[in-house]
């Protein structure tokens, strides 16, 4: 029982991220509306980013900005006192790229709407077959 509780406490964060990912993926697969699909894609993206950030977390560590004073330039820095900055860097750029891809995706949505006057996937397919 004790062991099970330990496993639960140390893993519950990861499980929540996996649930978020499942929600996003289900949105992409099952929703028919194109904007809903894009929202699902973004949820999936943020869940993956959240997972990456969480593997950089450290207990009893502070944010990755070195404490510094005017005279403390040469004090040694210990790696365990600071959170791992590498996942932050990779995911920071991923977020900004995510908004750029979101812009292109919404551009395509507007183009599709100009062509077929609907955003529902099944109606678009119907109109393609008619034409």
């Amino acid at each position: 029982m004790e062991v099970l509780l330990d496993v639960l406490i140390s893993r519950v964060n990861y499980w929540v991220y996996i649930v978020l990912m499942m929600i996003g993926l289900y949105g992409i697969i099952a929703k028919k509306n194109l904007v809903k699909k894009i929202i699902g894609m973004n949820i999936l993206q943020t869940a993956v980013i959240l997972f990456f950030i969480s593997i950089g977390a450290k207990k009893n560590a502070t944010i990755p900005i070195i404490e510094h004073g005017h005279d403390a330039a040469h004090t040694a820095v210990t790696a365990t006192h600071y959170i791992n900055p590498l996942p932050h860097v990779l995911m920071l750029t991923a977020i900004v790229v995510a908004v750029a891809t979101l812009g292109v995706a919404l551009t395509l949505v507007i183009k599709v709407h100009q062509q077929y006057h609907t955003l529902e996937e099944n109606e678009i397919l119907e109109r393609i077959r008619e034409a």
Binding site: S10, R11, Y14, I18, I55, G56, A57, K59, L86
Partner: peptide
């Protein structure tokens, strides 16, 4: 797969 992961916030995890 997550059962094989290092515990949350472990300073000695492979990533850090």
């Amino acid at each position: 797969g997550s059962l094989e992961f290092p515990p949350w916030g472990d300073p000695a995890s492979p990533a850090s």
